[in-house]
Design a protein around this nucleic acid. Structure first.
Length: 725
RNA sequence: GGGCGAUUAGCUCAGUUGGUAGAGCAGCGCAUUUACACUGCGAAGGUCGGGGGUUCAAAUCCCUCAUCGCCCACCA
C-alpha cells in the first residue's frame, strides 16, 4: 500500500534530487510516517530530550470530552498549543505537553441519554450500576478514537503521561480536596435553591443555565385588598405572604407581619404582609406575593424574614397535593390556564397582558425552563478562594494575553456565588459522603468509615450524588502532575500556559486558579491564552442543525494537516472568534506546494556542496556578508518576538510572506544567474534550512519531510533542532 | 439594567508603542518545455461605520452617535 520509494533512505541524493520531489507533496503519506517517527523518537516525553533541554516549559492540554468526534475548536487548540510546544522545544526548553481525556460528566451523560432515547430506553429505568458501566464503555471507546484524532493533527504531546479524569489517582486528589474544604470550613451541605432541570433530573450550576428573553402573559389577580402580578399562576397555591416596599405610601396603612384574611384559589386563606426593600415600587402595583421554594428572589426575601417554605411543584414538573385535588398531579404547563380560568370565575382575575417580556432561565442542554427547587446539596464557599485568585491576578502571577478577559475574569470573581457541586447524575465521581437519614447532616467520608450521624447519632446513608465535572477538572493542572509528592509536580508545576476557549473562562479557568491556589499555594499557570469560537466561512456559529459543522479530520485529509493548521493561525487574533473557510485552507495547501517546489529547486541546485556541517565556517562568514542573510536574520528575530508575545497570527503571516515573496520570488529568481557559484548555493541552503526551522512549529509535517532530505551532516530530527537565533 | 467586542477592498479577516493601508478568496489581464498548472507574474480595487476633538501627522488616542454580536444581572 505504501510507496516504498517515498519512504526510506532517500537522504543521500548524489545523483540528483530526491525522487520524492518529482511528485507533488503528498500530505497523507507524509503525515502518518512523520508522526510515527516523532513518536518513536521519544522526544515528546521531556525525560528523553537531549542534554541542552533544561528549563521546563509545560502546557496541560484541556482534556477533550471523550464522547464524540473532535470539532474545529479542538483542531484550533491542538494547533495553538502544539505551535507553542514545538517552538519552545526547539529553543531548548524541557517541554511537557500533557494530554488527557475528560469523562465530562453531565455532557457525556446527556449524549448517552440521547443515544438511549433513540433506542427507546430511559436511564431512569436502568440499574445505576449497569448504566455506569455502559457509559464507561462508551467513553473508553470514544477516548481511543479521540486520541488518534489528536495525533493526526500533529500534537507533539507526551502520551506516556496521558491522564483520564476518572483514574483512581485523580479521584483520590479530588476527594482529598473535598475533605480539605470541609476541614477548612469552606464546604457546607445546605438546603438551598438550586437550578433544577425537570428533564435531566439534576441540579445545575449558574453557568449551566442560560437566560433567554421570553414573551409570556402577565396576569394581575385580586389578592385581598391588593392586586398582584405574576407570569406563573401555577406557583401561587402556596403564596401566603404579600410583600411591598416599606416606603410605599400606597400601603402605609398595612404593617409588617400584619395578617389578613382573603379568598384565594382553593378557598379562604390567611396571608401575612411583609415589608421588604427588594420590591420595586415602580413595577406593577408595587405589591407581590412570593413563592420561596421556586424563585430565587422570593427565597432570599423568605430567608431575611424567616418565612415558611412550601414545595408546590415536584421534581418532574407536576403539582403537589398542596394544589388541591383539582390540580394535584397536573403538569404545570397545562395547569396554568386552568388556574387562571378558576380565578376568573371567582372574580379574582383583574387583567391579562399579552406579550410581557421577561428573562427566564433554561437548561443549557435541553432549553427547557429551569424550575428552581430547594434541595440539600454540597456547596463550596467561594469568597475566600476568589479573593486569592484575584490577588494572583493583581500581582501578575497569572497574566491574561487578552487584557479584556482580565476584566471579565475579575468581575466574575468579585461577584461570585457559592458553588453547588452536587449533581444528581450517575456519570461522574461519586461524592464521598454520608447523609443522616434523620437530621439530614452531611459528613465527608473518604474511607467509608462513618456509620452514624455525628450530630444526632441517627442512621446514615451514602450520598448518591456525583461531583460537578468542573469541580474535578478544576484541579486538573496539579492532579495530573501527581500532586503532592510526584516528581512531575516538583518539576513542572506551576505550568506555563493555559490555552483554552474563552467560553469556559468561568467554568474552568477560574476554578483552576481558585482550586490550584487553594491546594498548592500557587497559581496553576502563568499565562492564559484564550481563543475564540471557530465559526463557518460567513461567521455563523457551527451547529448540527444548521449543517455547517466542519470536521477537522476531513479537512486535514483533504488539504493536509499543515494547511489546516496554517489556516487556523493566520489572521486569528487571540480571544476573538474566527471564521474558517475551505478557501483559506486551500490557500495554505498551495503554500505547502510552493515550499515543496522551492525545496526541490534548492536541493537540486546545491548538489555540488555535498553534505555540509551547519557550523561550517563558510556559512558563518556568508551570514556576515550577504544582505539576504541579514534580512533573514531580521525576519526570524521578529518572528521569535511575535511568538514570545503570543502574536501567532502575525508570526505565521510573516513566515508565509517571507518564503513566498522574498525567498521564492526574489532571492531564488536572482540566484538563477549565478547558480554555479558555491556562495550562492550555500546561501540558498542556509535560507532553506532556516525557513524550515522557523516554519516547523506552524507546519510540522512538510518541514520535517523536507528536512529529511537536507544534505546536512549529523542531522537530528527537525523536531529537536535548534531554533534559529 | 450593567460590561465588553466588532464596524477596514465584492466576500472573510489582519494591521502591538500614531508616521504615505495588508492577506486569502472571488474578479480582471498576461504567461504554457518549467523549481512550481495543486502554477507564475501583473494590474485593479478602500474618503479604514457617521460626526467631533488632540497632534506636524489618526484605521490607530479621546468624546459622541449608529448598527451588529457576546457576556453578566434574583425585578414579580
Amino acid at each position: 500500500m505504501l510507496n516504498t520509494d517515498n519512504n526510506l533512505n532517500l537522504n543521500q541524493n548524489s545523483n540528483g534530487v530526491n525522487e520524492k520531489f518529482l511528485n507533488p507533496y503528498n500530505p497523507q503519506e507524509t503525515e502518518k510516517k512523520q508522526y510515527q517517527l516523532w513518536e518513536e523518537s521519544g522526544f515528546f516525553n521531556p525525560d528523553n530530550l537531549p542534554e541542552r533541554h533544561k528549563k521546563p516549559f509545560t502546557i496541560i492540554m484541556p482534556p477533550p470530552n471523550a464522547n464524540g468526534s473532535l470539532h474545529a475548536g479542538h483542531a484550533l487548540f491542538v494547533t495553538l498549543e502544539d505551535l507553542m510546544i514545538r517552538y519552545k522545544r526547539m529553543q531548548g526548553f524541557k517541554t511537557l505537553w500533557l494530554p488527557g481525556a475528560d469523562h465530562a460528566g453531565f455532557e457525556t451523560q446527556v449524549v448517552y441519554e440521547k443515544k438511549l432515547e433513540k433506542e427507546g430506553k430511559s436511564r431512569f429505568k436502568m440499574d445505576p450500576k449497569e448504566l455506569y458501566d455502559e457509559i464507561m464503555q462508551f467513553t473508553l471507546h470514544n477516548k481511543s478514537f479521540m486520541e488518534n484524532q489528536v495525533r493526526s493533527l500533529g500534537a507533539s504531546c507526551d502520551w506516556s503521561r496521558e491522564k483520564f479524569t476518572l483514574e483512581p489517582e485523580i479521584v483520590r486528589t479530588v476527594n482529598e480536596t473535598f475533605k480539605k474544604l470541609s476541614a477548612d470550613g469552606l464546604l457546607y451541605r445546605g438546603k438551598r435553591l438550586v437550578n433544577w432541570c425537570s428533564k435531566h433530573q439534576t441540579s445545575l450550576s449558574e453557568l449551566e443555565t442560560e437566560g433567554v428573553e421570553k414573551e409570556d402573559k402577565f396576569y394581575t389577580f385580586q389578592y385581598g385588598p391588593f392586586q398582584i402580578g405574576t407570569t406563573r399562576p401555577e406557583t401561587k397555591f402556596g403564596d401566603k405572604y404579600v410583600v411591598m416596599h416599606p416606603d410605599d405610601e400606597r400601603y402605609k396603612e398595612y404593617e409588617h407581619k400584619q395578617k389578613i384574611d382573603l379568598e384565594w384559589i382553593n378557598g379562604p386563606i390567611t396571608a401575612t404582609i411583609i415589608k421588604d426593600e427588594a420590591v420595586d415600587m415602580e413595577f406593577g402595583t408595587g405589591a407581590m406575593t412570593i413563592t420561596p421554594w421556586h424563585d430565587t428572589a422570593d427565597f432570599e426575601i423568605a430567608q431575611r424574614h424567616n418565612l415558611e417554605y412550601e414545595q408546590i411543584i415536584d421534581f418532574y414538573g407536576k403539582l403537589l397535593p398542596i394544589a388541591g385535588p383539582e390540580f394535584e398531579g397536573k403538569n404545570i404547563t397545562v395547569a396554568r390556564e386552568e388556574i387562571v380560568k378558576k380565578l376568573d370565575k371567582k372574580g379574582l382575575l383583574v387583567k391579562v397582558e399579552e406579550n410581557f417580556n421577561h428573562n427566564v432561565k433554561i437548561c443549557y442542554k435541553c432549553n427547557r425552563p429551569i424550575e428552581p427547587q430547594i434541595k440539600a446539596q454540597w456547596f463550596i464557599k467561594t469568597e475566600s478562594l476568589a479573593q486569592k485568585a484575584l490577588e494572583a491576578v493583581e500581582k501578575g502571577e497569572v497574566k491574561f494575553i487578552t487584557k479584556r478577559h482580565k476584566k471579565i475574569f475579575k468581575h466574575w470573581l468579585e461577584n461570585i456565588h457559592d458553588w453547588n457541586i452536587s449533581r444528581q447524575i450517575i456519570w461522574g465521581i461519586p461524592i464521598p459522603a454520608k447523609i443522616c437519614t434523620k437530621c439530614g447532616e452531611g459528613m465527608v467520608d473518604l474511607d467509608n468509615s462513618i456509620s452514624k450521624c455525628s450530630k444526632c447519632g441517627g442512621e446514615v446513608k451514602e450520598d448518591i450524588d456525583t461531583f460537578d465535572t468542573w469541580f474535578s477538572s478544576g484541579q486538573w493542572p496539579f492532579a495530573t502532575l501527581d500532586f503532592p509528592e510526584g516528581e512531575d509536580f516538583k518539576n513542572f508545576y506551576p505550568t506555563d500556559v493555559m490555552e483554552t476557549g474563552h467560553d469556559i473562562l468561568f467554568f474552568w479557568v477560574a476554578r483552576m486558579v481558585m482550586l490550584g491556589i487553594y491546594r498548592t499555594g500557587k497559581s496553576p499557570f502563568k499565562d492564559i491564552y484564550l481563543h475564540g469560537l471557530v465559526r463557518d466561512a460567513h461567521g455563523k456559529k457551527m451547529s448540527k442543525s444548521k449543517g455547517n459543522v466542519v470536521n477537522p479530520l476531513e479537512l486535514s485529509e483533504k488539504y493536509g494537516t499543515d494547511a489546516l493548521r496554517m489556516s487556523l493561525l493566520v489572521g486569528n487574533t487571540p480571544g476573538n472568534d474566527m471564521n474558517l473557510s475551505e478557501d483559506k485552507i486551500r490557500a495554505y495547501k498551495k503554500f505547502a506546494n510552493k515550499l515543496w517546489n522551492v525545496s526541490r529547486f534548492v536541493l537540486d541546485n546545491t548538489k555540488d556542496l555535498g553534505e555540509i556541517d551547519l557550523n561550517d565556517e563558510r556559512l558563518k562568514s556568508l551570514s556576515r556578508s550577504k544582505i539576504e542573510l541579514q534580512n533573514l536574520q531580521k525576519i526570524t528575530s521578529d518572528i521569535t518576538k511575535d511568538l514570545d508575545n503570543f502574536q501567532f497570527h502575525i508570526a505565521s503571516e510573516k513566515i508565509y510572506h517571507y518564503i513566498w515573496h522574498e525567498f521564492a520570488d526574489k532571492i531564488i529568481e536572482e540566484a538563477k544567474d549565478k547558480l554555479d557559484e558555491i556562495e550562492t548555493q550555500l546561501m540558498l541552503l542556509e535560507i532553506l534550512q532556516t525557513c524550515l526551522k522557523t516554519l516547523h512549529p506552524f507546519m510540522p509535517f512538510i518541514t520535517e519531510e523536507i528536512w529529511e532530505s537536507m544534505p546536512i551532516k549529523n542531522k537530528k530530527l527537525l523536531l529537536i533542532e535548534e531554533w534559529s537565533k
